[in-house]
Simulated assay, not measured.
Amino acid sequence: MKDLFIKTELQKKWLKKLKEVEKPFKKTSAQVDELAIFPQENIEKLTEIGYTSLAVPKKFGGEEISVYDMVLFQETLASYDSNTALTIGWNLGVAGEIFEKKEWKRSQLQFLAVELLKGATINRSASEVLTGSPSRGGRPGTKAAKRDGNWVLNGRKAYTTGAPMLTYFLTSAWVEEKEQVGFFLLHKDLEGLSIDETWDVISMRGTGSHDLVLENVKVDESMLVELPETPQGGKKLRGWILHIPACYLGIAQAARDYAVHFANQHKPNSLNGPISQLPNVQQLIGEIDLALIQSRHLIYSVAEAYDDPKRRALLTNELAAVKHTVTNTAVAVVDKAMRIVGAKSLQRTNPLQRYYRDVRAGLHNPPIDDMTIKQLAVAAIEKESNKSI
């Protein structure tokens, strides 16, 4: 189904490169989940082939992929290994957004580009246990204070996906001097910066989403790279966040492929052929493919609109709607795949139980479902109200 959305030679080239890592990534995915180990070798392989720097603009020596490209690649990668895809997706998404928004100084952008091309990785570190999701607008407990011409940061960040492999942590803090939230670019080797290995969950067990601990971390003044004009929780189009639903779409596709293969191969002695001939199994397969077709057309059409500056200006809540639709669809698709396979799907050696646990994580990635629904409702009400004025 995905082949319909391949449009360029760049996409073909990178899908071919990703195809080469399919077998090794799939081979280790069960172990990564079972032992909750970080897929370091997978990340190193992606770095080696240049995947981690794909968002770097051409003017800085990169390939400058679009959001559409990223969705295509991330969906593919997630069908091989979910932990690797979600982890590296944050690196691609954060880098892509930084270069697109151009909120950093040119010298800072050039510095980041050079680092990424050399193999560095980056992710935002914004979540905190006490404030919850940063998308809800809470003030971070992490603080930055000016001392002797430098910034000194203290605090703890949660859910820092990819912590074991990150070179840079783009960390939010309350800047006391400016009385607003700012983002600081922190290198992993800074004195006082450490990782507390707190990640112990049943979904996405290998993403290394540990706590980032900052104890009197001192950085140069230039490392305050963002002072967002849009308040935390305010409206801001973030197309690169589509790496999240792309990941869960890839997992759902993997579940679908497994279930269809099983249905064609499983032949109980009560039947004259495989269970794929049964009406109830065909019903489930049909519902799965219908849901995937709907989700795939939605995410790629919105990604394409976002990449077009003229059409991007017309987008309102479509990005959030994509995340809501695709992640919830992924949960439903894996559930139906498990119904096809039956009790075997619950065996720890069966990939479906892993897919089922992993897609649940998508419900807790931003933006959260209730906020999306509220935004859609408020937008509809405001639009109607403006008509009557």
Rank of each mutant, 00 (worst) to 15 (best):
D370E: 15
G362R: 01
P367V: 13
P351H: 04
A380W: 09
D369P: 05
L352C: 06
L363N: 05
T372N: 08
V378M: 11
R348D: 08
G362C: 06
A361N: 01
D369V: 06
N386A: 15
V378G: 06
S345H: 01
D358R: 00
G362A: 05
N365W: 01
L376H: 10
K383S: 10
L363T: 03
D369R: 08
E382Y: 11
M371I: 14
P367Q: 13
P366T: 08
A380L: 08
V378H: 05
R348G: 03
L376P: 02
A380M: 11
N365Q: 12
K383A: 12
P367Y: 10
A379H: 08
E384L: 13
Q375P: 00
D369G: 04
G362K: 02
A361M: 01
T349F: 11
Y355S: 02
R354V: 03
S345N: 06
I373A: 06
K387D: 07
R357E: 13
E382W: 08
A361Y: 00
T349C: 09
K383T: 05
N386K: 14
Y355P: 01
P351T: 05
K387E: 09
G362D: 03
P367R: 09
R354G: 00
H364P: 00
S385G: 11
N350L: 08
K383N: 07
A377W: 12
D358N: 12
L352K: 01
K374E: 09
E384D: 14
D358W: 00
L346I: 02
I373M: 10
N365I: 02
L376K: 09
D370K: 12
D369K: 05
